[in-house]
Design a binder for these strands. Structure first.
Lengths: 187, 187
DNA sequence: TTCATTTTTTATCATTTGTAAATTTTCCCT
DNA sequence: AGGGAAAATTTACAAATGATAAAAAATGAA
C-alpha cells in the first residue's frame, strides 16, 4: 500500500497540498515487538501503515486492554497527544515487522494552518475515526460477546490469523478463556 | 450559554470566520419529547445546545440503547449523516424543553471549503469528540459497572438529577435493574 | 529435531448481570 | 389534591462471564 493510496483513502487531496504533505513524510521500518508510541509521553510523530499490523493497548491495574488494531492503510496516532497535547492513554506495539510512513505532528499542525485542503483532510480523518469508534461503542452495548466475535470474523477475517487470540479477546471486551469457550461453541 | 461561548469552547475562531459562521446560525426552541434527529434519514441540520438536555439512542432488536447525552454547550449531530452522508444509527430525543442554535449541514460544508479557520474548528471538534468516545470505550472495558456509575456521579452529578435512571443505566451499558442494585449497594 | 516457552483450550466454581414479575415511588395532568 | 401512568426498586431465578488452575497444542530457538 503506497502513500498515495493511504492519503487518498482518507480524503482525496489536490496535487499541491498532497505534495506539501508528502514532503513531510518519511518511510521507516521497525521490527515486531517494538513499542512505537508510549502512553506516558507526548508523542511527536504519527504513522501510516504501509505493511504490518499493530495494536493500541492501555495499561491499568493488573491487566492491559487492547482497544484498537491497525493494519495496511490505517493511521497510527496517540490521539490524546495529538489532540490535547497531553500524555496519551495508550501504548502501541508492532505485532509484525512493519513498514511505516512517518510524519511529525508539529509539521502536520503547520500544514493545517497553511493548506485548507489539508485542514479538511485532517477533519475528515477525525470524523471517520469518530464514526468507527462510536459504532464500536454501540456494538459493545448491543451485541453479546459471541455476536461481536462473529462480526469480527466476518469483517476482519485476516485479523484472527495475524493476531493472538488473547489480544482479540481483550479487544472484544472479554477474557481469553471466555473467547476460547465461544470458539468451541461455534464449531 | 450564548453562541460565542459554545463556538469558542470548541476552538477560538478569529472574528471574520466567526461572523461568517454565526450568520448561518439561527435560534430555535423545541419542546421536551421531540425527536430532533432521526436514525433513518440523512439529517440536514446540526444543533448547539443553549439550554436543555438531550440523548442519542440507537434502536436495535428489542431494546434501545442510549449512548450519548448532550447538555449546555454540546453539539448535537447525527455523526454518520454528517460524515458519510448516510442514514445515521441514532435518534436524538429532547429530554427537556430546549433552546438550540441551528445550523444547516450544507452551509457548514460550504464554510469548510471557504474558511481555513472554520475547517480547523471542525477538525478540532471531531478530534475532541473522538478522544471522549475512545475514553468511554476504554473505560467500558476497564471498569466495573459500579466504578463507571461512581465516575459518572462525580463527573456529571447534574445528569443523574436531570435524566431518568433507565437512560443512565443504558448509557453505562447495564440494565436498569442492575443499576438499581448498584445504587442500593452504594448506600 | 528437541526442548522450552508461549498460546490456546478445558474444567470447575464463584460472581456478575440479565429477565421477569411484583411492589413501591414519583411524576403529571385534570 | 387525587387518580392514573410512568419510573424505580426489589425479589427470585437463569444465563453469561470471570477467575483460577491445569492440560494440550503450537511456536520458536538452539
Amino acid at each position: 500500500m503506497n502513500i498515495d493510496q493511504v492519503l487518498d483513502n482518507i480524503y482525496p487531496l489536490p496535487d499541491t497540498s498532497k505534495r506539501a504533505l508528502k514532503e513531510n513524510i518519511e518511510e521507516v521500518n521497525y521490527p515486531k515487538g517494538l513499542i512505537l508510541l508510549c502512553a506516558d509521553k507526548i508523542e511527536k510523530n504519527l504513522y501510516f501503515i504501509k505493511k504490518g499490523i499493530v495494536r493500541a493497548y492501555s495499561q491499568a491495574a493488573a491487566n492491559e486492554i487492547t482497544f484498537w488494531f491497525g493494519k495496511e492503510g490505517d493511521t497510527v496516532i496517540s490521539m490524546k497527544s495529538y489532540v490535547a497535547h497531553q500524555k496519551g492513554y495508550e501504548d502501541i506495539e508492532l505485532l509484525e515487522d512493519c513498514e511505516l510512513y512517518e510524519l511529525k505532528t508539529k509539521n502536520l499542525q503547520k500544514l493545517f494552518e497553511e493548506y485548507i485542503d489539508i485542514a479538511n483532510w485532517g477533519r475528515k480523518f477525525a470524523e471517520q475515526e469518530l464514526v468507527k469508534t462510536e459504532e464500536r461503542l454501540i456494538s459493545r452495548q448491543f451485541r453479546t460477546a459471541t455476536e461481536r466475535y462473529k462480526k469480527l470474523l466476518k469483517d476482519n477475517p485476516d485479523l484472527i490469523q495475524r493476531v493472538q487470540l488473547g489480544h482479540i479477546a481483550s479487544y472484544l471486551g472479554i477474557t481469553q478463556v471466555s473467547l476460547s469457550r465461544i470458539r468451541a461453541d461455534i464449531k
